[in-house]
């Protein structure tokens, strides 16, 4: 029997209300494997409110609080204060919000939580639109993607604007740890969760969450599409600890973005020129990431007592 490469503990119960093939459902399952049972999760209005809590049931084996869509950051600051007042320092506090509730509606609360240095983990699971309410575009919807509010009709060519760079916004607040996670890479995913769990202070995960109904693909392709997102450079995997950026899935060459786009109906209308523009943007983003990795951290410690050092660690993973 093969050794288990991720923890056996299950803290997401079956019977939840996620769509078949839901990337966000797998994201929560992997997240709680890495965090364990001493965890409190705060969920705003998003798909996961509906997934977890058809009353009177709960899909989580840990405490779960619902909060208003704009207030996840404030909510976890409050929960952290309560947990500390109760003398429970070993409890991990997590906010688990969608891309709309993070990059758009909850942005100020996220910024406040990071600035207050709340000892908690903020998760943005990114299915790249307001999926719970019916596939309306969000600030995290990528350029060119079809949604119900960026239709492909008349002059409409999908979303005209580019995707917000939430990691850049978060990193401007100097969190102690921030990373991109992808459930198609469970070992890398859980390792980052376990790393972050051991670092007190404000932490952030940007989790890729493929959405079969919203992205217009069939449910069995969720893991493949997630893998393609990383291996084409659309969603690179990296982590930033104390200001030092490290790519955790190192690629000697990127696959063509077309392999990723062609699997999803939301990009079906794109012309060759539009696809080339996306390819150029992806390549530029990847190069920028590699530059940032080689440049090293900004001057000054992020955490008291942690000296900033320069230069990347040696690469550990390679994949073609």
């Amino acid at each position: 029997m093969a050794r288990l490469t991720i923890p056996p503990q299950e803290l997401v119960h079956p019977g939840h209300a996620a769509c078949p093939g839901c990337g966000a459902a797998l994201a929560m399952r992997l997240l709680l494997k890495g965090l364990g049972s001493r965890t409190v999760v705060s969920v705003p209005a998003c798909c996961w409110t509906v997934i977890a809590t058809p009353y009177p049931t709960t899909a989580l084996g840990v405490a779960l609080l619902d909060n208003p869509i704009e207030s996840t950051g404030a909510s976890i600051s409050g929960i952290r204060a309560a947990v500390d007042a109760l003398g429970l320092p070993d409890v991990t506090v997590v906010g688990f919000a969608g891309d709309g509730g993070t990059a758009d509606i909850g942005l100020q609360a996220l910024s406040g939580m990071l600035e207050r240095r709340t000892n908690a983990i903020y998760v943005m699971y990114d299915n790249e639109a307001y999926m719970n309410t019916g596939i309306q575009r969000s600030g995290a919807t990528p350029e060119g993607a079809w949604t119900t509010t960026t239709p492909v009709i008349g002059v409409g060519r999908g979303k005209p604007e580019r995707k917000k760079d939430i990691m850049a916004i978060v990193l401007a607040h100097r969190p102690v740890y921030a990373a991109t996670l992808n459930p198609s890479f469970p070992e890398d995913f859980v390792r980052k969760v376990e790393t972050a769990r051991g670092i007190p202070g404000p932490r952030f995960f940007h989790i890729f969450a493929p959405c079969p109904p919203g992205w217009r693909f069939t449910s069995e392709a969720t893991i493949e599409i997630g893998r393609l997102a990383t291996d084409t450079g659309v969603f690179p995997l990296y982590e930033v600890e104390d200001g030092r950026l490290r790519i955790t899935r190192r690629l000697s060459s990127l696959k063509p973005v077309e392999e990723y786009l062609s699997r999803q109906g939301r990009y079906g209308h794109l012309t060759g020129a539009e696809r080339e523009r996306i390819q150029a943007q992806v390549r530029e983003g990847w190069e920028r990431l590699r530059r940032e990795e080689s440049v090293g951290p900004p001057p000054g410690p992020v955490r008291p007592g942690v000296a900033a050092t320069s230069g990347p660690e040696p690469a550990t993973v390679d994949s073609g």
Partner: peptide, 17 residues
């Protein structure tokens, strides 16, 4: 205790498939 204390495992989702 929590207001919702029944596990979602009590809900069968087999009819979805």
């Amino acid at each position: 205790g929590p207001l919702a204390v029944v596990s979602s495992a009590t809900i069968a989702t087999s009819a979805w498939r």
